[in-house]
Design a binder for these strands. Structure first.
Length: 597
RNA sequence: GAUCCCGUAGCUCAGUUGGAUAGAGCAUCUGCCUUCUAAGCAGACGGUCGUUGGUUCGAAUCCAACCGGGAUCGCCA
């Protein structure tokens, strides 16, 4: 478990306890405080087994001695009990009450500014087809990581790389020219990215047909795939593009423009923004100079007229960086782009690439190359690698049409949210606009939370039915708890103003309250852990645990109905604190929370 | 073939410097709305933590081998 302020308080105290009781120091890193399991009394537990060699006593005797010392010397340790080798510490209600006051009156998930500037690249779409489910995992993950890093005190620059150039877009352009009859988003009402994607598919159809025709005339399949006239024409178009042919460039700009309109509509709906866009059409020329310079300095070498890097010492292999004809490969421009970014942002502390794990090898090589070129910042590059998204039917394959379209998916979850919410009928006094806004909020929460609660590194299964679920371990469940608390606090408005917290004599916490407080107390440590590991799932899961515990409290402990003013105000404070932390955590996940639902 | 990732309840997932009887959600079943939002709560059912060895007082966690799934290894992007 990650460190929090109780740890900071108790670890030195434990060291002193060992020193005083047994005359031997113990290392700080050997001391591990864990959450006490629910079936025992206590808040924090230390296992003394590792120290028996030092103390020379039995587990029970050791734990007893340490426990007594702590109670005697540390104010917040109220009492303790020993079960086998486990020393369970009970933290005082006074400590928890102080913490509650802080959590209710301030933002416990706010961190001091670190002064560091971090760049997160979290989208890199191609402009020949619309966004799909895989992009959504990528985007939600990168967006959330950006938010988490911001919350952790960093300045974050969010960027996207747009692969706007290359054979893929030429294929769409050519097919549109040939079969499009001048269709535009305006003329057909089709979203721009969908329209361009449609012609990419058209190209593929025509291409396959031509290949089949060639094969029928006796051309070997492999040859036919290279010789299909439409492909040759697309390649020719790419050459014309590179030669700056005005007509090709104009068409390219027009169709890319449609795609951007489409992407932007999607981005706006899912609530993400970028500070800067990098276009491959501008960056693809980068890197060549750097590679040539590297060759001069002997970092790279020439073989068969091409420039290579040798990473065999690093356990990898050799890789071409410049082709025999002097042109770049993908790696080359990534080298150049990284260098450019650090030139543009001289204060950049860290550069994070949110890219699927199919490119693990690519980034390994990229980082090694930049290191070999001598850039000090090469150590600060990080590939935030995430696993592929599978469907119950298997892998998503664009060729087989099993790709889940991002816009369709968003629409589905929003529709599901509308259906369920309408069914529950709690929105009688909502205006149509308010309803529409709420459905978006709930639907997107379901989708985002579903994709973010899983460890990013792992391949995951996307079950459409489960993703629109609004109950259990879901985003809407968390939203619901938040809305419920807000409702409670609204009602408390007058009552809270009248109550006097100082009149409370009762500081004894109920178990239900204590459980919630402990989870709140851990929250800052969970956030900093999430920031360190670049893992939103840790935060997502903790937010769920917190509201789950709160619901248990809510169900069995009266708040507004509590007669004792002190208890009532304490429970309102607890509710306030949970709402605040929940809202902030959801903000870090890129999920909004409603005041009512 | 080489390298890397993954394997925990019927399903989807937590479990991160090795610690107590491995936890949630979904699904199935049982209770709880004349009380602060039942999108909720309480409970039941459900496990050879892929397998076998090893290290350790102690292993889902570390190591090795094997089995199963996936990815990558192009003068493609």
């Amino acid at each position: 478990m990650s460190q929090d302020r109780l740890h900071a308080l108790l670890i030195p105290a434990l060291q002193r306890a060992f020193q005083d009781s047994f005359g031997t120091p113990v290392e700080e890193r050997a001391l591990v405080l864990q959450q006490t399991r629910a079936e025992f009394e206590g808040d924090l537990t230390i296992n003394v087994f590792p120290f028996l060699r030092v103390t020379g006593k039995s587990p029970e005797q050791t734990a007893q001695a340490i426990g007594e010392h702590l109670v005697g010397h540390v104010e917040v340790v109220e009492r303790f009990n020993v079960v086998k080798g486990f020393l369970n510490l009970v933290i005082s209600d006074a400590y928890w009450s102080r913490f509650l006051h802080e959590a209710a009156s301030s933002d416990i998930l706010a961190f001091p500014a670190t002064g560091a500037e971090v760049m997160v690249e979290y989208a890199s779409p191609n402009t020949n087809k619309p966004l799909h489910l895989g992009h959504l995992r990528n985007i939600f993950l990168g967006w959330s990581v950006s938010r988490i890093l911001e919350a952790a005190g960093n300045k974050v620059i969010k960027v996207q790389v747009i692969n706007d150039r290359g054979i893929h877009i030429c294929k769409s352009m050519l097919a549109w020219q040939r079969f499009g009859n001048g269709e535009t988003p305006a003329s057909s009402g089709l979203k721009g990215d969908k329209l361009v994607g449609k012609y990419y598919v058209e190209f593929d159809k025509a291409y396959k047909q031509e290949v089949d025709t060639l094969v029928a005339t006796g051309v070997p399949k492999e040859e036919a795939e290279k010789q299909a006239p439409i492909l040759l024409e697309a390649q020719d178009m790419l050459r014309q593009w590179e030669a700056n042919d005005p007509a090709v460039r104009a068409l390219w700009e027009k169709m890319n423009g449609w795609v951007y309109d489409g992407f932007n509509a999607t981005y706006e709906r899912i609530g993400v923004t970028f500070d800067k866009n990098y276009y491959e059409s501008q960056t693809y020329v980068l890197g060549k100079e750097d590679v040539l310079k590297g060759k001069e300095r002997g970092v790279f070498y020439e073989k068969d007229g091409a420039v290579w890097v040798d990473n065999t010492k690093e356990g990898l292999d050799e890789k071409v960086l410049l082709r025999r004809d002097g042109t770049s490969v993908y790696m080359t421009q990534d080298i150049g782009t990284a260098i450019k970014r650090f030139e543009e942002f001289p204060n950049l502390k860290k550069l994070i690439y949110t890219v699927g794990n199919e490119q693990d090898y690519h980034f390994k090589v990229l980082f090694i190359i930049l290191k070999k070129l001598g850039f000090a910042w090469a150590d600060e590059l990080f590939h935030l690698s995430y696993g592929m998204v599978d469907l119950p039917s298997g892998k998503m394959k664009s060729r087989e049409g099993t790709v889940v379209d991002a816009d369709d998916l968003v629409q589905e979850v929003v529709d599901a949210a509308r259906a369920v919410t309408t069914e529950l009928g709690k929105l009688d006094d909502f205006s149509d606009e308010e309803k529409a806004e709420l459905f978006e909020m709930i639907g997107l929460a379901a989708l985002k939370y579903f994709l973010l609660k899983v460890d990013p590194k792992k391949r995951m299964l996307f079950d459409p039915a489960a993703s629109i679920d609004l109950q259990g371990h879901t985003g809407p469940f968390i939203q619901y708890t938040y809305a419920r608390i807000r409702s409670l606090l609204r009602k408390a408005g007058e009552a809270a103003a009248e109550s006097d917290p100082a009149s409370s004599k009762s500081q004894v916490l109920l178990p239900e309250e204590r459980v919630v407080l402990k989870l709140l107390h851990q929250f800052p440590a969970v956030l900093s852990e999430a920031a360190m590991r670049l893992d939103p799932s840790a935060l997502a899961n903790h937010a769920y645990e917190l509201v789950k515990a709160y619901n248990g409290f809510y169900q069995s402990v009266p708040v507004l109905k509590e007669e004792d003013e002190g208890k009532r105000s304490r429970r309102l404070a607890l509710s306030t604190a949970v709402a605040k932390a929940t809202k902030k955590a959801m903000w870090c996940l890129g999920i909004e929370v409603p005041e009512r639902m």
